[in-house]
Design a protein around this nucleic acid. Structure first.
Length: 364
DNA sequence: TGCGTGGCATTAACCACATCCTCGG
DNA sequence: GTCCGAGGATGTGGTTAATGCCACG
């Protein structure tokens, strides 16, 4: 849990002043990017334009990054329940190893028939009733069987072609030109990042390096931030329909990836689709193995279980000295109290004597 | 089936202050 | 380019109120 002296990580203002405006109406915030039209569109314009002709109906559209709202989303972070562009994804998930363990899956273009469907999984039917649909991601099978370890392990091995036949992983295969699960291991996200950044311009690469460099100093660990329950944002669509994002309670992680805006202001991505993004969707299929030997499979199972065992969502202490101070600091009903308060000095000294774990950090 | 109630679980907010970081000189 | 001081931002943990969820009548 991230708290900033009660100031709030969003500063009480959830509006996104850098959100891209619809290229058509120039008024509403865009929600999708149409690759065929090379245009960012709000939901209303999207529905209007792509319902105009049968050809347009088949235009592939991509959700706009929920963090920057300026670039097409490339990945869905399941931990943060957010669709992110490559820039935001790298910013957020390269900040620290914990964030790097977030499970991200590529986001597919929105099928035309699912217009009005958000990556969170809700789709508006013609009746106006929201219905939950499955993510068109390669690990939806994992989602279904998440509670069962064996099934989850099996989902780790989605290479199983038989299994994939009956789920929508094959759609991923169409999208990425093959079975991609191996590359979605995302262990440290190296493979994907290598691909992306090898195709990105120097500026973006430089930006990425800065993020990497900043890690270990004073960057905030982007854990899962629960949105205040009354702040769960709804998207209103101008289709005469409404749909609600999945009320998972998670907020956009990118807005808080750097707690100190002065030190590390959010790098607003290029308003236009970056080269890396374009390449991600247009590059030739990544060659991937299609068969697993029993040994490979066993190795994958072992590796997966090791990773699962190693999962830790505990709070990360970055400054032991601050922890030591906090633990020895006098409190009143759990709150930090001034040392001049009644009994504070006594509490302070008593704690120091009894607690052998931390000593007083001398101040000079 | 819908509503109200109670119990339990979860989460955000609060506090002080040493430390960290940035920036200007 | 390096150093130094000033000033602002940050992080830290225990408690509690607020809120959500669930079962039950």
């Amino acid at each position: 849990m991230l708290k900033e002296n009660g100031r709030g990580i969003h500063g009480g203002n959830t509006s996104n002043h850098w959100a891209r405006i619809c290229d058509t109406c120039q008024s509403a915030v865009c929600t999708v990017y149409c690759r065929a039209d090379s245009a960012y569109l709000c939901t209303g314009c999207d529905a209007r334009i792509h319902a105009a002709s049968p050809e347009a109906l088949y235009h592939e559209r991509i959700w706009v990054c929920e963090a920057s709202e300026c670039a097409p989303a490339a990945f869905l972070c399941k931990a943060d329940a957010a669709s992110l562009c490559t820039t935001c994804d790298s910013d957020i998930h390269s900040a620290n190893p914990l964030a790097g363990c977030h499970h991200r899956v590529p986001i597919l273009p929105i099928p035309s028939m699912l217009c009005g469907t958000h990556p969170s999984g809700f789709v508006m039917g013609p009746t106006g009733i929201a219905a939950k649909i499955e993510f068109l991601t390669q690990d939806d099978d994992e989602t279904i069987h998440e509670e069962e370890d064996e099934d989850e392990t099996a989902s780790w091995l989605l290479f199983n072609p038989v299994k994939n036949i009956n789920n929508q992983s094959n759609k991923i295969g169409q999208f990425f030109g093959g079975e991609v699960d191996d590359y979605l291991d995302l262990d440290k996200y190296n493979s994907c990042q290598d691909i992306q950044f090898s195709n990105q311009d120097n500026n973006q690469l430089q930006h990425y390096n800065v993020s990497q460099k900043s890690y270990g100093s004073d960057n905030v660990v982007p854990t899962q931030f629960r949105k205040s329950k009354d702040q769960i944002h709804n998207h209103s669509f101008q289709l005469g329909l409404e749909y609600e994002t999945l009320n998972n309670g998670y907020d956009h992680p990118a807005s808080i990836s750097h707690a100190n805006p002065q030190r590390a202001r959010f790098q607003n991505p290029s308003p236009r689709p970056q080269k890396g993004i374009t390449d991600l969707f247009s590059s030739p299929p990544i060659p991937m193995p299609t068969q697993l030997t029993p040994m490979d499979r066993e190795a994958r199972v072992l590796r997966y279980r090791e990773k699962k065992k190693a999962r830790k969502f505990e709070k990360t202490i970055r400054y032991a000295s601050r922890k030591a101070y906090a633990e020895t600091r006098p409190r009143v009903k759990g709150r930090f109290a001034k040392r001049t308060d009644v009994g504070a000095e006594q509490m302070f000294s008593t704690t120091l004597i009894e607690d052998g774990g931390y000593g007083i950090v001398p101040s000079f």
